[in-house]
Design a protein around this nucleic acid. Sequence first.
DNA 1: CGTACACTTAACCTTATGGTTAAGTGTAAT
DNA 2: ATTACACTTAACCATAAGGTTAAGTGTACG
Lengths: 111, 111
Amino acid sequence: MVKCNDVDLDRTFAALADPTRRALLARLGREDSVSVSELAEPFPVSLPAIMKHLNVLSDAGLILRQKTGRTVSCRLNAAPMADAMEWLHHYERFWSTRLDRLADLVENEPS
Amino acid sequence: MVKCNDVDLDRTFAALADPTRRALLARLGREDSVSVSELAEPFPVSLPAIMKHLNVLSDAGLILRQKTGRTVSCRLNAAPMADAMEWLHHYERFWSTRLDRLADLVENEPS
DNA sequence: CGTACACTTAACCTTATGGTTAAGTGTAAT
DNA sequence: ATTACACTTAACCATAAGGTTAAGTGTACG
């Protein structure tokens, strides 16, 4: 199993690897539907820069855009995060402390 | 809260955004302690390329290296993944209640 | 109509990423 | 001592990422 070419996971993790993009997602987590210019406003960078971030997020499937008149509203689509989460989940036992693991054992294997 | 400069999270997600690096971590998840050349062997790229990947993983704190004689053994350090997991955890409600959201969409988008 | 507004695209720049080959360092074995 | 081995570093290359300014598209409004 040399090739592990999970392009979707690549894109998801890459999209999450930037603080501006995480902040955009956080905003959409709080606000549900926000226009592009409203999204851009708090950041000290230009609108085209934000556009590029939004494109990265779209390509990763993390946001959806819908045009209404001349404004475009963005909303969160967290589904791809579930795959990232699942990948990480496989490593959970490596950071759980011994006590956590003990608790896990007790929970999952009673008696 | 414009600045969300979580450099560690940047590095963790960026490190995870490459299939070769994820495969290296997977190997270390299975094998606990593996030398650099053993790690590199399955991949169709040069050893220096793998070195760069290992450096990225080290910089993200995801692996630890220990030199013994002329061989360097690498082991997984999953701790930084916990922070990534925690970040993702905040969005869990956006995909775990997907059926509810689907119903919501159907309600709010009459065709 | 014309103009302002919301967004997008284009062109460009700088730095980072992922790869290469070749050379260097230090330890082990003959 | 010499040679082989395991890894590292250096130098280079092509492409991608993240930013800029300027120009373009399309919708709304006076």
